Simulated scan of single mutants.
Amino acid sequence: MSSAAQSASLPLQIAITTGEPAGVGPELTAQALAGAAAHWPGARFTALGDAALVAERARAVGVDWQALVADAPRIQVQHRPLGAPAVAGKLNAANGRYVLDLLDSAIDGAMAGTFDAIVTAPLQKSTINDAGVPFTGHTEYLAERTRTPRVVMMLAGTGKRPLRVALATTHLPLKDVSAALSVEGIVQTLRIIDHDLRHHFGLPAPRILVTGLNPHAGENGYLGREEIDVISPALKLANGEGIDACGPYPADTLFQPRYLEEADCVLAMFHDQGLPVLKYATFGEGINVTLGLPIIRTSVDHGTALDLAGTGRADAGSLIAAIDTAVLMAQHRRAG
């Protein structure tokens, strides 16, 4: 058997970072993996976190973690000790570096080929910053750690015809968005979306709809010229490369079934232009995917939910969907 065939026959290895220890990440990981045998029979999972913490939070939501990991090597824990005792719902800056250690371990494993994909439970940015480490978000940190010059944040719903929304800019103050847009930047973003939808999602000819920046897509320049000077020229260049990207469309009317039913992704110009629509439609079952990385990374569409941590009331649906997508992407990637 060739090495390629051997690799294709091996189980997929998926890493899950359990995220902020005061939040819902550890318990959602346990809940999601409790159904691993039924959901993902061809995959193995490594939960990264403090082993005692994960077991404790699993018990709080009725999951027998010891029995679950007895199914090794399908499910295992890569133990990383907490920086300080963790209490559900109470942030502690002493655990900021612990959270980053989980993420670093997952990234390093994926870069080395140990993991086929990583799935990240939510973290608390403030905890990491309070620990003295400047941190903007998962997306930016992944780009920095993998030395990727441009990545694309895409959120997606689930289902037969999932709604996908990618962003031309991510975590920026609104006043800085216009200056951050450029013709080449939008073209690069469209290249990444087109490439990853083809190679990681199995879409042979992705169709991308692109929003304008301004109300009414600039109203022919009367409400702003970004559509004329930046977005339209970028679309023309992308079309010349064989990328099926259309627009710019007014964002307030684009998100309708009659437009979206023929689209594989919408590219919005800034965070709060596209994501409120997607989260309204899919919250709790949506996912976050970082496109353009040399590794596969998916995540949930929600935060740490400190008020729900340890109560058993948090829903693992988004994490299950993120694992579903990570497995799907890894399968497509392995198939070439």
Score class of each variant (00 low, 15 high):
residue 67 A to R: 13
residue 95 N to V: 09
residue 135 F to W: 11
residue 109 G to P: 13
residue 43 A to G: 06
residue 20 E to L: 04
residue 17 T to A: 06
residue 289 V to D: 08
residue 336 G to T: 06
residue 52 A to V: 09
residue 85 P to W: 14
residue 67 A to E: 02
residue 309 A to V: 01
residue 197 L to S: 03
residue 308 L to K: 15
residue 133 V to P: 13
residue 294 P to Y: 11
residue 73 P to Y: 12
residue 293 L to F: 09
residue 71 D to I: 10
residue 57 R to M: 01
residue 164 R to A: 03
residue 67 A to W: 04
residue 30 A to Q: 13
residue 19 G to E: 04
residue 168 A to N: 07
residue 303 G to T: 07
residue 222 Y to Q: 09
residue 54 V to G: 02
residue 243 I to M: 06
residue 260 L to I: 10
residue 90 K to I: 15
residue 157 G to W: 03
residue 25 G to P: 14
residue 292 G to C: 04
residue 46 T to D: 13
residue 188 Q to I: 05
residue 178 S to Q: 05
residue 158 T to P: 15
residue 144 E to Q: 13
residue 145 R to L: 09
residue 256 Q to D: 02
residue 311 T to V: 09
residue 80 R to E: 00
residue 76 Q to R: 13
residue 94 A to P: 09
residue 222 Y to D: 00
residue 250 P to G: 07
residue 324 D to F: 12
residue 130 D to Y: 10
residue 62 G to P: 11
residue 334 R to K: 11
residue 175 K to G: 11
residue 323 I to W: 01
residue 136 T to G: 07
residue 319 L to N: 11
residue 325 T to Y: 01
residue 199 H to E: 01
residue 241 E to G: 07
residue 332 H to K: 09
residue 75 I to M: 13
residue 75 I to V: 15
residue 48 L to M: 12
residue 11 P to K: 10
residue 220 N to G: 11
residue 160 K to W: 03
residue 332 H to F: 08
residue 197 L to N: 09
residue 179 A to L: 06
residue 283 F to H: 10
